[in-house]
Nucleic acid binder design. Structure first.
Lengths: 186, 186
DNA sequence: GAAGATAGTATCGCCGCGATACAATATGTC
DNA sequence: GACATATTGTATCGCGGCGATACTATCTTC
């Protein structure tokens, strides 16, 4: 069962990471899920910075996430904005305080140190994990949450980007953000 | 910040895995931590199948783990045995029921499916994660929990294995188990 | 318009989690 | 050998993450 070694490694790394996040967030009264939600929101595009998207990304129920977000707002780490087209949806914007927190804790200092040890293996690691995540998502029927760059809906005409799903124009740097509606290009 | 991509990938894979474990364990009333503890114990050697070792492996407090183990024992997934030399220590033995559970859920079915997609990248992935975990552990000052095979204390004479730390003889297949006292060979 | 789908919140009960305190045994020092 | 110290394990408390359920409001579809 040598194929289980990758599983064991990921489980242990995940457990240590979780423990580290808990330790680092404790002074601010933050749990791992709070930092994870903020980290996601900092990378999400305007279609994906909502409670339901956070819930899908983290694999939690929307009811639960809704309550975590209230805590984050009270802590001054999140700002809410109502969507101008759809009165149901709320956009979540990490504050400057949250950005600073993420810069310091996500990834944790120990992680940054450890990553230097991977050296030239990093690219292989990145490629392997990307394939694995992609396969895991499709095996569970979950959304891919990829960047617009790799989405089959992205259109590129005359140097300008457009989302083929919403027909909206996209700023170039926003094509690197994560999207809830992402579907991998064929 | 391309070096953060590995972090993002691991965090997301970890979150999905956690969600999956929660879903799979729910019918038996098991939380992710229960399956993780059992999975560790199934791989631990006789110096490392104790509450304190589980706590260190998972990065949790011993008080917390102690309570989880009581739940596992009540569920018929764990058996306790007193150490014959040290009256303080307790050895934890997963029952046949636990072994069957692990065989079915750890790794989860979806994971097994997904792993086939990694193909020939698997070895690189394994190697990269091994280096990363090792660096993470030393960056946090944590124990390595490696196999006796890779331990600097392991002695090999006349086809028989011995632990140089405890002076105990080791059966060959037990040198593949995880040890709390493990220290990487130079 | 009516029916169904979707986004979000409120409330409940369960239980993981760290902190603290404690008991029991082992080890080390004089 | 006696005493201080370290180590293993458990019990208890309070906090808060988590899913389930129920609910409101809004959008979409026919």
């Amino acid at each position: 069962m040598a194929e289980d070694r990758v599983f064991d490694l990921i489980e242990r790394i995940g457990a240590l990471l979780r423990s580290e996040l808990r330790r680092l967030g404790a002074p601010q009264g933050l749990e791992p899920v709070h930092l994870q939600a903020l980290a996601y929101l900092a990378r999400a595009n305007r279609y994906s910075d909502t409670p339901i998207a956070v819930a899908e990304f983290l694999g939690l129920t929307k009811g639960n996430v809704s309550q975590r977000l209230i805590a984050l707002e009270k802590a001054g780490l999140l700002r809410r904005r109502h969507d101008r087209d759809d009165a149901r949806v709320v956009h979540l914007v990490p504050t400057a305080k949250a950005q600073a927190l993420l810069g310091a804790l996500s990834p944790p200092p120990a992680w940054r140190t450890a990553m230097t040890a991977t050296g030239d293996r990093r690219e292989d690691l990145e490629a392997g994990l990307t394939v694995l995540l992609s396969a895991l998502q499709s095996a569970n029927g979950r959304r891919t949450f990829g960047q617009c760059r790799s989405c089959r809906f992205l259109q590129h005409k005359d140097g300008a980007f457009t989302c083929g799903l919403t027909r909206d124009p996209l700023e170039p740097d926003h094509t690197l953000r994560l999207c809830r509606e992402h579907e991998p290009a064929a």
